[in-house]
Design a protein around this nucleic acid. Structure first.
Lengths: 223, 223
DNA sequence: AAGTGGTCTAGACCACTCG
DNA sequence: GAGTGGTCTAGACCACTTA
């Protein structure tokens, strides 16, 4: 089943065969298929829906729009979220980015800068690095013309589905990022570095986000 | 089974009855018990061990010592961790703490301050708030005489097992905390506020930690 | 060898969705 | 009503631990 997902035999949003069909295909019992699906659903690779079927998870599903964004308002509920792309350029990868994305140093990467607004104020300044060969043809104009989330667009335009991510958080000061957020240069910011993986634990995105945590916080559940 | 855990019929570290015994006790089949145990094991309430049995999870298990500490070194592996209690006093709860712990405002709480060192340098300054009725008799002396982790001690001394926690992260400056960490007062710190819950979603600890993220970072996996 | 959890099976019955 | 996933059963067999 992982192979069917990775090889794009089953694509995001699509309904996969029923448990009985899969049991026949793989030569196991229905209960075994069920357990396998349970595991993939727990990893957010599949979504079960009683009476309808089992579907390949997709970032195009509105409920998954900001699946990886852990920012919450200190009180009340989140304001309308808006993404404002600022720039998009192709540059050679520096050592750190190349290493994270498993590219050769100096390989071409696309750098995308953007702001995330909640309500009317900018709260996050992101610098996003993408391997140029996978995301060829990504331009500022295309991004500005589409309201959907970045990961939805990556799915639709490039067939790249983000599965999971690893984040590293630090408190820093950064005059440039603070300026983008309308804050003084010495204002403490939450730096969130994220490496995002697609099928097969393959890293395809690395980003650095500066968060203004005055009215929002990063929320994490520990189990 | 949740009731058996919450009522302390099964206590941390203890082996619970076999799947077949439980099936008989609850009048269901062994497969159903298995599924229930699977769920509790996924929540870290139980630990399965093939050939030996199923055990109630415990913070006294060395592998769970720093289960809720997400701090990782920027490179290489973590140095030896040491906790240094600084003070322990009973005070009236302020509004925020009382609210988080579901106590009446002004109810007595124990405030414990401590430093966490990695290698030889302090990296975390914690202020920990505990309901005084549950943790009665906690003193600085007792804490200083025991090397085990706080949550182990809470389990042994007070029968309170921490199940899960919710954290809120911000970047801040705090002159007092920075001083404790040997940093200038304007140094950006990662503020981690944690509310910790025992069985039945009951909050029993609230803490505020200031992290020096110069050589360490807070690591989070997103699924 | 006996007891534990780990995996799998074949089938029953229920709850939900949709034409 | 037909098809889907959701829950449960009773039992077989395997892998691991301990005495």
């Amino acid at each position: 089943m992982l192979r069917a997902l990775g090889d794009r035999e089953w694509t995001p949003g699509m309904m996969i065969p029923s448990e009985n069909d899969l049991a026949a295909r793989f030569g196991v019992s229905q209960g075994t298929v069920r357990k396998a699906i349970d595991e993939l659903a727990a990893e957010n690779l599949l979504v079960r829906c009683q009476g309808k079927g089992t579907f390949v998870a997709s970032h195009c599903d509105p409920s998954a729009y900001y699946r990886f964004l852990r920012l919450q308002p200190n009180d009340g509920h989140r304001h309308r979220t808006r993404s404002t792309p600022l720039s998009c350029a192709e540059v050679p990868a520096d050592a750190a980015v190349a290493d994270s994305l498993r590219l050769a140093p100096g390989a071409p990467v696309i750098v995308l800068e953007r702001l995330l607004d909640f309500g009317d104020a900018p709260v996050v300044f992101d610098q996003i690095f993408l391997a140029a060969d996978i995301f060829a043809g990504l331009t500022l104009e295309r991004l500005q013309q589409d309201e959907r989330s970045l990961y939805s667009l990556f799915e639709i335009w490039f067939g790249v589905r983000m599965i999971h991510a690893e984040e590293r958080l630090r408190a820093v000061t950064d005059a440039h990022a603070a300026g983008r957020l309308g804050l003084p240069g010495t204002y403490p910011l939450l730096l969130v570095e994220r490496c995002t993986y697609t099928y097969g634990e393959r890293p395809v995105e690395w980003r650095r986000g500066f968060y203004d945590t005055t009215r929002y916080h990063y929320r994490n559940i520990l189990n």
